[in-house]
Computed example of a mutant assay.
Amino acid sequence: MTATSANCFDSGSILDGIRRWVEIETPTDAPEQVNKLADLVAAGYRDLPATVERIAGQSGCGDHLVARSAWGQNEPGILVLSHLDTVHPMGFITRLPFKIEGDVAFGPGIYDMKGGAYLAYHAFRQVCANGARSPLGVTQLYVSDEEIGSPTSRALIEAEGRKAKYVLVTEPARDGGKIVTGRKGVGRFEIFIRGVPSHAGTRPGDGRSAIRELGNIIQTLEAMNDLKRGITVNVGVVRGGTRPNVIAEEAYAEVDMRVPTIADSDELVPKILGLKSRTDGVTVKVTGELNRPPYEKGNAGAALYEHAKTLAAEIGFDLVDTSTGGGSDGNFTAPHTATLDGLGVDGKGAHTHYEQMYISSIEPRARLLHRLYQTLR
């Protein structure tokens, strides 16, 4: 390895680039901030053999960016999925400023997932640096709404995913650097219950409590949990009633469902949507759907992982795979395109006040992305 090639992956200079992205706060619900970062990201491609398409934001979300290599766009290539939005609210950077302590760099979104998004961008710059070209074209998609389920980018992700031969997702590594080859599918549902109000003291028999019926519904949903199969159904939000002396006319709940396989989804989604009232005079309405399909480790995905594992060994580290209950945009592509997730930086504390990345993970993981660009055919 030459000194020049080694300097291409200098952790300090890469970390400085990550810092610039982190210090632009990008809550999903602050589209002007997301667009400010999109401006910076787009500017980074101006001197590269690439085109950048900017897709205007919708429904209160920021813009999406699609950066395409100037080569290889006439055949299926490599799609890199990243998101620019974070869960942290505006001003959080005063609580969690960018700082370095030993091998750890802190900052909102540094682990989930600005660190990984920047690694993919940097690796692409290196593919372009010496005039060489990767065997396949590279398309890098940066979306603005992943943290709320990708409602305005899902169609774009799926369309680009179907055109690709491989999908690389720059979500953070898991549990000490593990790559992700499986994610549970995610379903979200809302439950609306309407009963009959009455005075709780003088005419309780005239009422039909929506809250009581919600209790029945919650018990039914809780019974769907099957930890051995990896199925979880969680009632995370409940509201109902007006005053303690009124039989509740209305109640409401929000439900999160996680399933490891499409078969599990096919079984549970109809059950949840088909929930019925046990009480005469009370109506139950359920809306929702499978928001992200399960990301199952198919044959193509397994082969992609084995290839990445071989490259990692050549670089000097062991790449272990895992599955996780959290969803990502990789869920949208895995059912039809070989997908490898968790290619971002290693660290911990996603969505917390101590979110951090390990500086020592920068170089090897940037090199892995670079080698994937260079060797996938």
Rank of each mutant, 00 (worst) to 15 (best):
L214H: 04
A159W: 12
I148A: 06
L372C: 09
A300N: 08
E75S: 15
G187W: 11
G288N: 12
G185V: 12
E158N: 03
K184T: 07
Y295C: 10
A120C: 10
R133F: 08
P172D: 03
W71K: 05
G116I: 10
R203W: 00
P89R: 12
R46A: 15
N291L: 10
P135F: 07
D280W: 06
R377K: 12
A263W: 01
V180A: 00
R292V: 02
T139D: 01
R278F: 05
A210Q: 06
A303P: 00
S5Q: 15
L319S: 01
L79G: 02
I262D: 14
G274M: 10
L268F: 07
R20K: 15
G116D: 12
G301A: 11
I272Q: 05
S198Q: 04
L96V: 13
F92K: 04
L168H: 01
T232C: 09
G241Q: 09
C61I: 08
Q140H: 07
G301N: 10
G137N: 03
I362T: 02
H307L: 11
E306W: 02
L227E: 15
G131H: 14
A129R: 12
A312C: 12
C61K: 13
L40D: 12
H83W: 08
Y354K: 13
G116C: 06
S5F: 12
G77A: 10
L168E: 06
Q140W: 01
P270E: 09
Y373M: 03
A223I: 08
G177V: 08
P364V: 10
L304W: 01
A50C: 14
Q126W: 13
G281E: 05
Y166V: 06
S265L: 04
N216C: 06
I191E: 02
V286D: 01
F332L: 15
R95L: 13
V180D: 03
V80L: 02
A251K: 04
R19I: 12
E23V: 13
V41R: 00
L340R: 09
G274W: 07
L81M: 03
V80T: 03
P89Y: 05
G347M: 09
L273T: 04
A334V: 01
T333R: 07
A50R: 03
E314D: 15
V80M: 02
A308N: 15
E254D: 10
G325F: 11
A43F: 05
R243W: 09
L369F: 06
R239N: 14
E296W: 13
E75F: 08
A43C: 07
H88D: 05
L81A: 00
Q33R: 14
R154C: 02
E25K: 00
D266H: 12
V255L: 09
T339I: 04
E222W: 03
D39Y: 02
S323M: 07
N331D: 05
A173K: 07
V282C: 02
G77K: 09
G185Y: 15
V235M: 05
